[in-house]
Design a protein around this nucleic acid. Sequence first.
DNA 1: GAGATGACCATTG
DNA 2: GCAATGGCCATCT
Length: 108
Amino acid sequence: MTTLESSKEHKQKLIWQVIQAIPYGKVTTYGQVAKLAGLPGLARFVGATLKQLPDGSKLPWHRIVNAQGRISFPELSERYTVQLELLTSEGIIFNNGRINLKQHIWCL
DNA sequence: GAGATGACCATTG
DNA sequence: GCAATGGCCATCT
């Protein structure tokens, strides 16, 4: 059957919905997004999906960091700076290029 | 079709 | 705290 619900587009939609549900002032990890989307272990797919996001997207992609509480971009990258600005403007505290996941993690 | 790459994660030393 | 390793899946060459 080609009506598999595990098609890429379906996964993408699930991931987008999860990301869209992240509240203001909270962050989450790629693995967490994947898990909440019903795709445990596909953290990498989340990243691949976000990379394809158009700039005009309404998704709060900046609220997603890796499991180490760090931004997954090179420090000199423009995306890094943008994400850092957006997060700090939402009250997220960065500590030595790193955030306290325990404090800001999005937990249901 | 095979190999390399990627906005990752958990474990181990 | 950091580096290396194996594993997950999709995309590109």
